[in-house]
Design a binder for these strands. Sequence first.
DNA 1: CGGTATCCATTTGGATACTG
DNA 2: CAGTATCCAAATGGATACCG
Lengths: 138, 138
Amino acid sequence: MSLTDTSKSANCLAMSDVLNRIGDKWSVMVVGMLGRNGTLRFNELKRLINGVSQRMLTLTLRNLERDGLVSRTIYPEVPPRVEYSLTEMGKTLQEPIDALWNWTAEHHMSIIDAREIYDARENLAAAAEPRKIAYARG
Amino acid sequence: MSLTDTSKSANCLAMSDVLNRIGDKWSVMVVGMLGRNGTLRFNELKRLINGVSQRMLTLTLRNLERDGLVSRTIYPEVPPRVEYSLTEMGKTLQEPIDALWNWTAEHHMSIIDAREIYDARENLAAAAEPRKIAYARG
DNA sequence: CGGTATCCATTTGGATACTG
DNA sequence: CAGTATCCAAATGGATACCG
């Protein structure tokens, strides 16, 4: 219990640190894709991940490689071939990422709905509230 | 299998959408804290979450509320009291978030180490590579 | 093919001051 | 206490062009 508690609430700093890397959407996408497909080339990843720019994919892969989550293999051919896959540590990240992925698939619609309700309420409140600054002169 | 596969790889768009909200570190922190503590006031959250500014905490809470993950209760007292807690949907997010949290606690050090190794290698490479622009005149 | 380099618009987020 | 409002610096990220 004490150990569990420690590992859970001890330092937000570690969470911040790690989340800044693996919490952004491109990283989650890359880990998700590599986890499911095993090994992928740069442009395969680019095609699979909807809307990622070359720049962002490069940066994301470099950061994941730096953190020891993704391995990069260069084949000195012409044209060049570079393959990416998860490291052993990267594979352990697969499970939590998958959990998040499944949660998202399950609750996305509810979130959309919640937003609509919230926004509708907001607009209503805005319409009802007494004008604060802008009222017709006179 | 088909269902599983669909829910996993179908739309990156849903992942992007949701991750943009619950993937940022402050949201994860808030959900983590509320999940473990049940109900918290604004300044309690602020104290618990290391380094969050008032502005970011407000924004994060509004977004989570908008998405139906956090509920906000105002007690019309003086001084004002506002309590936050997870909604039912928010509670379901607890599990994946906890998984991520535990993963982080377990692997943070390995990541730190991996970074050091990577950076050391980088510096070495930078030192070895032929000077491209800046070399001593003469 | 798999990048790097550069430019630039937008977003993010901290600091600060003020309010009900 | 629990915000809102404003300002401004820094980070983010797309578009584009070029390179080995």
